[in-house]
Design a protein around this nucleic acid. Structure first.
Lengths: 228, 228
DNA sequence: ATGCTCTAATAGTAATACTTTTATTTTTGC
DNA sequence: GCAAAAATAAAAGTATTACTATTAGAGCAT
């Protein structure tokens, strides 16, 4: 699996960037170091000027890759969801039992990312922390409907749709498959955040993982299809 | 109930403001119009300069009430959660049956706010829209731990704790009462957002309300205590 | 050697997020 | 009704942000 992932190129909507950051060394340094810096200082304090200094390049050169830092955030979150989707598909593809399949899916979506593939310039551990802290900011904007129409969130939507399909495959009668799927994806980020900053608002910790909580939650709501 | 609510003053942590906006007409205009403007233009585009122009006052006068717009957002969200908490306590207080109590609580937390009390300067309908769109930004910051220690989120935490207690009262054996409570509170905001902007990611709409979804979700996970 | 693309450097602009100072108005205490 | 105190308004200033525009040089391809 690791071996396969190192050759992975996540396909990201071309409108998100001006020039593909994967196409040059400068582009890769922009992505690599923006992850390090946003993780360290948070998205609000992060600027292209600071990034330029860090990578020994110029602010204006970064603007040739991304229109603004919001687009860069969309790039990073899209990459993350694309990477997760790949893992989801890869890990569930061979499972035919709908229950086992859904169980695996919940695990992939809710687990803590602890291992960096260390091959690409993208540090997945830090990126997952960025997604926990900054993902909401990518869509909680006044431009969300316009950007949604442009397809900026399509990877994320496809991921939620895949989970929804697995829910419906397991229990055709369940009335809220999309809501449950989005609750698991977004709720997982939230429980990870609470674990780190508001421990009184969650029962999750290193033993009692979000995976266990959401697995319990989902399977309490679903009833396996009866054949025939 | 309406009559009672008009005399309500939500108590907000004094460190959030420099001068209590409830203490003067200018303060009330700041709060009233910031709600209108943030709803209209979004939190990112909203500035104290624009607010000053709108209320026929000066930027520097607004700074005597709130250190910055982040603190103003904390004020608004705290007010909202305090207002919701009041409704929660008021509506569930007289209910002794744990199941009915929890059911009512879920309804209060997840319903669409459609009626403005129209007595105070605070428009609760618009404020609830602001909370849906901007609440996460109040805590997804690098300062969250410091601000949490200062008690800026205590009303929100108390609200979640109340739901958690109701969950545990109904089912003492349930392992994730805090996580479930926080999932309902945060998930309700998220489902409302999806309903308006990503309808393919939710089953909720005007008939199939978030209240129905979360009521189903919660009671599927819980088993009523057996006496003795 | 020439042209092309990419990147770097510099400078500039408008807006933001404030702070400071001073003047004016309003409130209040007596 | 008047003086003192408090609150507000106006104006100006600063540092930073979020860009845009222009120019120049480096490296490579033909």
């Amino acid at each position: 699996m690791k071996y396969l992932l190192q050759n992975l190129k996540v396909t990201i909507n071309e409108k998100i960037y001006l020039k593909d950051p994967e196409s040059s060394s400068l582009g890769k340094r922009i992505v690599e170091n923006s992850i390090l810096m946003i993780d360290q200082m948070g998205f609000e304090s992060f600027t292209f000027k600071k990034l330029g200094i860090q990578i020994g390049s110029n602010e204006s050169s970064i603007y040739r890759y991304f229109e603004n830092k919001h687009k860069l955030l969309l790039y990073l979150t899209s990459w993350y969801w694309g990477w997760l989707e790949y893992q989801l598909v890869f890990s569930t593809n061979s499972i035919s039992d709908p229950k086992k399949k859904l169980k695996m899916a919940i695990e992939i979506i809710t687990r803590t990312i602890e291992e960096d593939s260390s091959f690409s310039h993208i540090n997945e551990v830090l990126l997952s922390k960025i997604v926990i802290n900054e993902n909401s900011k990518s869509y909680l904007t006044k431009e969300v409907d316009k950007e949604n129409k442009e397809g900026y969130f399509s990877i994320y939507k496809r991921l939620v749709a895949r989970i929804k399909d697995m829910i419906s495959d397991f229990d055709q009668a369940y009335q809220y498959p999309s809501s449950l799927a989005s609750t698991v994806v977004e709720g997982a980020l939230h429980q990870h955040f609470l674990k780190d900053h508001f421990s009184s608002l969650t029962d999750c910790n290193d033993e009692n993982t979000p995976t266990k909580y959401f697995t319990d939650l989902v399977f309490n709501s679903l009833k396996e299809n009866v054949d025939g």
